[in-house]
Design a protein around this nucleic acid. Structure first.
Length: 426
RNA sequence: GGAGAAGUGGCCGAGUGGUCGAAGGCACUCCCCUGCUAAGGGAGCAUACGGGCAUAAACCUGUAUCGAGGGUUCGAAUCCCUCCUUCUCCGCCA
């Protein structure tokens, strides 16, 4: 959520920056709502002040034993007027708030301006794609004989669900273990196990609601009528919200959290895209990194976090490139995002495997997460998140990049301790 | 699932209808005194939002907030209803 003060002070400037990311801010509607709000709020507060003053006077008069009937009479018809004013003010503020909740974050000034994915800027490439002396297969063809089972997945749960069996299931687990061990032991993150089902207000905090409800899985509790809850679409949600509604001490920052969790996405808007294989699933595992930092440190943290994600690919010796997303391709809450794209030989291209973003105070404002700074003032923290990495897509990359002509797959060195010393999937 | 108790500022804790945004204590900040690793005196010390205000800070002023949401009342931390959370006992369970 943007700072409403900023919109009040510089509406056109904000609108211009939002336009860079393809969001048309209805400035006239905002200005009209604000104008009305100001008048209504002033009036409501005046009425409240009058009521308070008179009520106080009644109390004082009573304690002196005076007759309170005259004051009581003067306050008689205040009630209805005040109630009406309070109600319309509340309705108006709901409207304003709802508008605010639907506005995406402002892009950072260093972000390239562009319309869509074609405007992204490549920052660097690491590693050299391997030259194959045989015809490369994609991960579906390599993996199916080794335990990748799309048919059974579909039988149980429909399209975009997959069963992993045997050595492939173990490799998947090994990847997750390796990732979370690296993030905790080498990069200093605290491992967290979180709920996978969360309350709606948590999703408002990180920005999935109200705008992206269609991307989520909703759940209802059996046996009783309860509040609707949601399956997390990333553990960024649960990790970031661990600090919601709190004032942190300056020396608690930075907070670095990581979790290995499943992620559930309805993929409502992507029918027909990436239908083959593991690339786009309703359920996939991810090791997520989250940092809660002091505002002045968030861009330094962003670069550092990108390094923490890159380190995983480097240790796995998977070629990748880093792109800076342009204004038009960034997510709703981000001011700046780097995508890590891993080389997939069968597609002969780089595919997203990690996304690292700074949200500045956008989520913190929604979550009411603040830090008491050196001046003793509460200020909103900055939040960052990044994948370190998406486990399913990493499995895809390992299968494809490490495939052999005979249909076996070599296990990357760093994973062998997690695979009981096995060096090959056969 | 059943029975009971409780939720007040950074922390502890008083407060059962009126000058209570809230005693007292702890912690913290500043000043004075003292002169030594301690004590004494004084002051300050919640958050959000609005208005003054034309940008920021400061300041003044108003409003809201005592787990959350409703209600009663001229007036609610206090009374009523619903919900949430925590604790104790019983039951069940991995």
């Amino acid at each position: 959520m943007l700072d409403i003060q900023q919109l009040r002070n510089d509406l056109d400037g904000v609108a211009a920056r939002l336009a860079q990311r393809g969001f048309a801010l209805d400035t006239a509607a905002f200005a009209a709502l604000e104008h009305e709000r100001k008048a209504l709020q002033t009036r409501t507060q005046d009425l409240q002040a009058e009521r308070n003053a008179k009520s106080k006077a009644i109390g004082q008069a009573k304690s002196r034993g005076e007759d309170v009937a005259p004051i009581m009479a003067s306050v008689a018809n205040l009630g209805d007027e005040l109630k009406a004013a309070e109600q319309s003010l509340a309705a108006l503020q709901d409207k304003l708030n709802d508008m605010l909740l639907h506005i995406p974050n402002l892009p950072h000034e260093s972000v390239p301006v562009g319309k869509d994915e074609s405007g992204n800027v490549e920052l660097l490439r690491w590693g050299t794609p391997r030259a194959f002396d045989f015809e490369v297969k994609d991960h579906v063809d390599i993996g199916t004989p080794l335990g990748l089972d799309f048919e059974t997945g579909a039988k149980l749960s429909g399209a975009r669900f997959t069963v992993l069996k045997g050595q492939i299931a173990k490799l998947h687990r090994a990847l997750a273990q390796f990732m979370i061990d690296t993030q905790t032991e080498v990069h200093g993150y605290t491992e967290v196990y979180t709920p996978y089902i969360v309350n709606p207000e948590v999703l408002f905090g990180t920005g999935q609601l109200p705008k992206f409800a269609d991307d989520m899985f909703r759940v209802e509790r059996g046996g009783e009528d309860g509040q609707t809850q949601y399956l997390i679409s990333t553990s960024e949600i649960s990790l970031t919200n661990t600090v919601r509604d709190s004032v942190l001490k300056a020396d608690e920052l930075p907070i670095r959290l990581t979790a290995h969790s499943p992620c559930f996405r309805s993929e409502a808007g992507s029918y027909g895209r990436d239908t083959r294989g593991l690339i786009r699933q309703h359920q996939f595992d991810k090791v997520e990194m989250v940092q809660i930092v002091a505002p002045e440190q968030s861009y330094q943290a962003l670069d550092q976090m990108r390094g923490h994600a890159e380190a995983i690919l480097q240790k796995l010796e998977l070629p990748y490139r880093v792109v800076t997303l342009c204004t038009g391709d960034m997510g709703f809450g981000a001011t700046k995002t780097y995508d890590l794209e891993v080389w997939l030989p069968a597609q002969n291209t780089y595919r997203e495997i990690s996304s690292v973003s700074n949200c500045e105070a956008f989520q913190a404002r929604r979550m009411q997460t603040r830090v008491k700074n050196e001046a003793g003032k509460n200020e909103l923290v900055h939040t960052l998140n990044g994948s370190g990495l998406a486990v399913g897509r990493t499995l895809v990359a390992v299968l494809e990049n490490y495939q052999n002509a005979d249909g076996t797959v070599t296990i990357p060195q760093v994973l062998r301790p997690y695979m009981g010393g096995v060096d090959k999937l056969a």
